[in-house]
Nucleic acid binder design. Structure first.
Length: 235
DNA sequence: CGCCAGGCCGTGT
DNA sequence: ACACGGCATGGC
C-alpha cells in the first residue's frame, strides 16, 4: 500500500512556519509607523520592489503627505510625481485618492471608523476600490486595521507550488489566492489564545523574508531553510 | 544590458 | 472560468 502522507498540507505549512521562525526570528512587520503608512505601502508595493517603495515614501514624507490630510492636500499631478519611483503612478495615484475619498465620504475620514466594520463587509468594500485586489485588501485588513485575516503573496504561492502542498498548483487568480488563504487558515486553525492576527502577521512576514532570499521566479532553493522539506516532498 | 519586483485590470478565448 | 499581456520605474 502506498505510503500516505502523515501530515496534511496545512500541518506541513505550519511546520514550515516553525522552521522559518527558527531561522529568521521575529520579523516585526509591517515596516511602517502608522496605519495610514501601511495603506500607502500596500498600494505602492504592488509588483514593485520594496526598495523602490521606500523612495516614494521618502518623497511623500518630505512633502508632508504620510497622513490622510497631507495626501488629500496634494494635487493628482503632485502625487503622481512623488510616487513615480515605485512605478504604475498613473494608476496608483488616482487609486490612493479614491481611498481617501472613500474615507471622507463614508467613514468620517477615519481609519478607526473603517476598522470598526465587520471583517467580511470591510473586505468587500475594499475590493470595490480601484487597484485593490485580494492581497492589497488583506494587507490593509491585517496590518492597518488589525483584522485577523491571512495575507497570501506570490512567494507563498511559489512555496505551496514547489512543495506540492496542493493537488493543483495555485494559479495567479482569485481562486488560487483564496486557496492559499484557506490553506493558511487551516494551518493556524486551532489557536487557543485566539492570536490569529499575530500568527498571520508573522507567517506572511516570514514568507516574504524567505521569498526575497531564496524564492525567485526561477526557482533557486539552494540555502533555503525549507529546502529539506522540498526534497522530501518530491520523494 | 536584461531580468525582476511583497498585483491588478482589461481583453480575448 | 481561465490564460495572457500591459502597466512604469528603478535596483542589481
Amino acid at each position: 500500500m502506498k505510503t500516505r502522507a502523515r501530515h496534511s498540507s496545512a500541518q506541513r505549512l505550519r511546520q514550515m512556519h516553525d522552521q522559518l521562525a527558527k531561522a529568521y526570528g521575529l520579523q516585526h512587520w509591517w515596516p511602517a509607523k502608522t496605519a495610514f503608512e501601511v495603506v500607502l505601502g500596500a498600494y505602492l508595493t504592488q509588483n514593485t520592489a520594496w526598495k523602490s517603495v521606500e523612495s516614494s515614501l521618502a518623497n511623500l514624507s518630505a512633502a508632508g503627505a504620510l497622513t490622510i490630510e497631507g495626501l488629500r492636500a496634494l494635487s493628482m499631478e503632485e502625487l503622481r510625481a512623488l510616487i513615480r519611483p515605485s512605478g504604475f503612478a498613473t494608476r496608483k495615484a488616482p487609486a490612493l485618492k479614491a481611498f481617501i475619498d472613500m474615507l471622507d465620504a463614508e467613514f468620517s475620514s477615519s481609519l478607526d471608523a473603517l476598522a470598526a466594520e465587520p471583517t467580511d463587509v470591510l473586505r468587500l468594500r475594499l475590493l470595490r476600490l480601484p487597484v485593490v485586489g485580494p492581497e492589497t485588501a488583506d494587507a490593509i485588513l491585517l496590518y492597518a486595521l488589525r483584522h485577523p485575516v491571512p495575507v497570501a503573496d506570490e512567494y507563498l504561492r511559489r512555496i505551496v507550488e514547489r512543495h506540492h502542498l496542493l493537488e493543483a498548483a495555485p494559479g495567479r487568480n482569485r481562486k488560487g489566492y483564496e486557496s492559499l488563504v484557506q490553506l493558511t487558515r487551516e494551518a493556524f486553525a486551532p489557536d487557543p489564545n485566539d492570536e490569529h492576527a499575530r500568527l498571520f502577521n508573522e507567517f506572511h512576514a516570514l514568507t516574504v523574508a524567505v521569498g526575497k532570499a531564496h524564492c525567485g521566479r526561477s526557482a533557486q532553493c539552494i540555502g533555503c531553510p525549507l529546502a529539506a522539506d522540498l526534497l522530501q516532498s518530491q520523494l
